[in-house]
Amino acid sequence: MTETVTAPEETPANEPSWEERYDGPTRDICRRTLVELARRDPRIMCVDSDVGGLETLFADLPEQYVNVGIAEANLIGMAAGMAASGLMPFAHTLSGFAAARACEQVKVDVAGNNLPVRIVATHGGLSAGHYGPTHHAADDLGILRLMPNLTVLVPADTVEAEQALLASVDHPGPVFIRLGRSATPLVYREPYEYRIGRAVTLADGDDVTLIATGPHPVGMALRAAEALAAEGIRARVLNMHTIKPLDEEAVLRAAAETGGIVTVEDHLVVGGLGSAVCEVVAARGDVPVRRIGVPDRFTDRVGGELDLLEHAGVTPENIAAEARSLAGVTV
């Protein structure tokens, strides 16, 4: 089942412009959107693990806000209880803590009971790299996509983050929304139809396909496609904003219509988008797949997200190089 959400087509004169509305980190717009929803629906609960900022936003909705402190397992357990009681909890924490520290609660309490808990997780991938390896979440998608019933969303920018949160409200079962930390460039500059489980084609091409997920990987894939176009190589770019359920139709179409697939992610090359795409292609396709992601080892560095991604080899240049090799072009 998929949900369709369309962003507003017009901005009233007294409203902020598109750029003003969608400026900033993905987590900020999700929080603002959640407050707007909570004002209209008393079932919506903001469950906080002391991530900061939420208490102020919900100051005039005290009965719809609970801060459990830095206790992620309790956060998920309480959210599951709320959902079982007919409420609509949005549990806020860091992605690495939701996937690892509270893994059992997500698996047993939420996914195991197919409860409508929405886990809004920030600092996904290496976006918390400045805190060091304890806060890296380069394995979160691999852990979470193994759980039956759990829908896993990775918005590419603030526009998509807003639509993902809106779509999650009426989506059956539990939903995990993976967000970053800092502001990232906009991918969408006009309204579009957002559907859970449906990849978005950002560029057409029939030589090779670049499948990316998350803000920086999608941006890198687009830049790589531009560089390839200058060389006469037509690269299709797919924004795979839903990791589970994966858009297998889009993957198989890419396998049938282009000469190869390059996946790009802010995640380990094991277990995430690349692995999911390989599973689909191996079962029903016959084209090569190259994976661009974080190497299968612990990252023992401290730094910004882009710095760590570059250190891991997740760059537009490496994406383009893999695409060239699939297209049979050497430079």
Rank of each mutant, 00 (worst) to 15 (best):
Pro148Thr: 12
Gly124Val: 10
Tyr194Ala: 06
Glu162Trp: 10
Leu126Arg: 11
Glu162Met: 08
Leu141Cys: 07
Pro155Trp: 06
Asp170His: 09
Glu193Ile: 06
Asn149Cys: 02
Ile196Trp: 09
Thr184Leu: 12
Gly124Ser: 15
Arg118Ala: 05
Thr151Ala: 13
Gly173Trp: 05
Glu162Phe: 07
Leu126Asn: 02
Thr158Ile: 12
Val175Arg: 01
Gly124Lys: 05
Arg195His: 14
Thr151Trp: 06
Thr151Pro: 00
Thr122Leu: 13
Ala156Ser: 15
Glu190Cys: 07
Pro174Lys: 04
His171Ser: 06
Leu150Val: 07
Val159Thr: 14
Ser182Leu: 13
Gly132Met: 11
Ala128Thr: 02
Pro172Trp: 14
Pro172Gly: 03
Ile119Trp: 02
Ser127Asp: 08
Ser168Met: 02
Ser127Trp: 01
Val169Trp: 12
Asp139Tyr: 09
Pro116Glu: 07
Gly125Ile: 14
His135Val: 00
Arg195Lys: 15
Ser182Glu: 13
Phe176Val: 03
Pro191Arg: 02
Ile196Thr: 12
Thr134Tyr: 14
Arg181Ile: 02
Gly129Asn: 07
His123Asp: 05
Arg178Asp: 05
Gly180Asp: 11
Val200Trp: 00
Arg145His: 07
Pro155Asn: 07
Val120Pro: 00
Asn149Gly: 01
Ala128Met: 02
Leu153Thr: 04
Leu153Ile: 11
His136Gly: 06
Thr134Phe: 13
Ala164Met: 15
Val117Ala: 03
Thr151Glu: 04
Ala161Phe: 09
Thr184Asp: 10
His136Asn: 11
Ala164His: 10
Ala167Ile: 08
Ala161Gln: 03
Asp139Val: 01
Glu190His: 09
Ala161Cys: 07
Ala121Cys: 15
Pro191Tyr: 09
Ala138Leu: 12
Ser182Thr: 13
Gly197Ser: 09
Arg178Glu: 08
Ile119Leu: 07
Glu160Ser: 08
Gly180Phe: 04
Asp140Pro: 05
Gly197Pro: 13
Ile119Gly: 01
Val159Ile: 03
Glu162Ala: 15
Ala121Met: 10
Leu186Lys: 15
Thr134Asn: 06
Phe176Tyr: 15
Asp139Lys: 04
Arg198Gly: 00
Ile143Ser: 05
Ser168Arg: 00
Asp140Gly: 08
Leu153Ala: 03
Leu186Ala: 15
Thr158Val: 14
Ala161Tyr: 07
Leu166Ala: 00
Leu150Gln: 08
Gly173Ala: 12
Ile119Arg: 03
Val187Gln: 14
His171Cys: 04
Leu141Phe: 14
Gly173Leu: 04
Gly180Trp: 09
Leu166Trp: 02
Glu190Pro: 13
Ile196Arg: 01
Ala161Ile: 09
Ile143Ala: 13
Ala121His: 01
Gly180Tyr: 09
Gly180Ala: 12
Tyr194Arg: 05
Arg181Leu: 00
Gly124Trp: 04
Leu150Lys: 06
Ser168Lys: 00
Arg198His: 15
Gly180Met: 04
His130Ser: 15
Ala164Ile: 10
Ser127Leu: 03
Asn149Gln: 09
Leu146Ala: 11
Tyr192Val: 11
Gly129Cys: 12
Tyr188Phe: 15
Ala121Lys: 07
Asp139Asn: 10
Thr158Met: 05
Pro185Asn: 14
